[in-house]
């Protein structure tokens, strides 16, 4: 057990899985970096240095720097997966999924089903999500709701180092295509993480905080926003349950409903957009299956429906903050008592 950053936790999961299983290969743009450059090999280890060190141990047959060819190498990764390799393919920014959308949602997601179960596609796609670095509309989105739409994919959204390592190991060992979403602003987060390998199953939400008055469901970086809000609310005598689903497919609806049954009040905070997002998805499920528990309408705290601006002041209006979560919780408490 030792303190690790989110980045180190992800690196360690990949390292341990690659040591354990020689069919695990790493594919993507600059996953090592420096290939053919004439300078250092393994110059980058990915744009955020997450995969540094792996080329040295596993060699160029297993750590493959690709050309800028998302469509091509995603297709290749799927073909390799169908052939018995266990690829971890890097989609640098989830915003780029448009370039290989067909491969991800029409091939990887549907391959097994469409061919009647003859195959398995044990592919993990690691990708960066999230806003907050002023890098604008095409490098800051949270597209996990889009991936969750497609049956056949599994979607993982870890909010901290401990979850990241255990969920990534599970993703790599999983025999289905998994989209593993790492929030850019969480890479420096530090937490106690076991040194040994361990697995966290999918479809198990984490009960981050117990309170009893309001249920807050939060994803990825928003879990920490929710925790901030909960501290403020506690001073006002409002105690929050905070639930982190950890995976959006499969989604642990049961834990969310359990909490709502007790609190009767639900606030969902999600950095993905207000239309067709996870907040809408979860709200609709609870409205349908937990209606009798609800004492107030469900409130969603999401960004506005706008492309993400670069200007820092505008971007901070975009990203949900603790203040908005506090306001939502107060509102839903007032409605319940009103």
């Amino acid at each position: 057990m030792s303190k690790k950053t989110y980045r180190q936790a992800v690196n360690e999961a990949i390292l341990q899985e690659m040591r354990r299983d020689s069919s695990v290969i790493l594919i993507g743009e600059d996953v090592a970096g420096g290939a053919g450059g004439g300078g250092e090999d393994d110059a980058w280890g990915g744009p955020m240095a997450v995969t540094k060190g792996l080329l040295g141990e596993f060699g160029a047959n297993r750590v493959i720097d690709t050309p800028i060819s998302e469509a091509g190498y995603m297709g290749m990764a799927i073909g390799a997966a169908a052939s018995g390799q266990r690829p971890v393919a890097d989609l640098m920014f989830n915003d780029f999924v448009g370039v290989c959308f067909d491969q991800v949602v029409n091939q990887a997601a549907k391959y097994r089903y469409m061919y009647g179960g003859q195959d398995k596609i044990p592919l993990t796609i690691r990708t960066m999500i999230g806003a907050g670095l002023s890098i604008s509309a095409q490098h800051s989105q949270c597209l996990y709701p889009v991936f969750s739409y497609f049956a056949g994919l599994k979607v993982v959204v870890p909010s901290g180092p401990y979850d990241a390592k255990g969920l990534l190991a599970s993703a790599i060992r999983d025999d289905d295509p998994v989209i593993f979403c790492e929030h850019k602003l969480l890479y420096e987060m530090v937490e106690e993480v076991p040194d040994e390998p361990y697995l966290i199953p999918f479809g198990e939400a984490n009960f981050v905080r117990e309170g009893g008055d309001v249920t807050i469901v939060a994803l990825s970086r928003m879990v920490h926003i929710a925790l901030e809000a909960a501290k403020i609310l506690a001073k006002e005598g409002i105690e929050c349950d905070i639930i982190d689903p950890r995976t959006t497919t499969p989604l642990d609806v049961e834990t969310i409903l359990e909490s709502v049954e007790e609190t009767g009040r639900l606030v969902i905070v999600d950095e993905a957009g207000p239309r067709c997002g996870m907040a809408s998805d979860i709200a609709s499920v609870v409205a349908e299956e937990g209606f009798s528990s609800l004492e107030a309408p469900i409130i969603k705290v999401t960004p506005p429906h706008v492309p993400i601006p670069a200007a820092p002041n505008l971007e901070s209006l975009y990203i949900p903050n603790a203040g908005r979560v506090v306001a939502a919780a107060r509102k839903v408490m007032a409605k319940a008592q009103g």
Binding site: G75, M76, G79, A82
Partner: peptide, 15 residues
Amino acid sequence: SGVALGCGAALAARN
């Protein structure tokens, strides 16, 4: 897309 998938099968065969 079969050509891209074929690269995958070929990569696996190489390995």
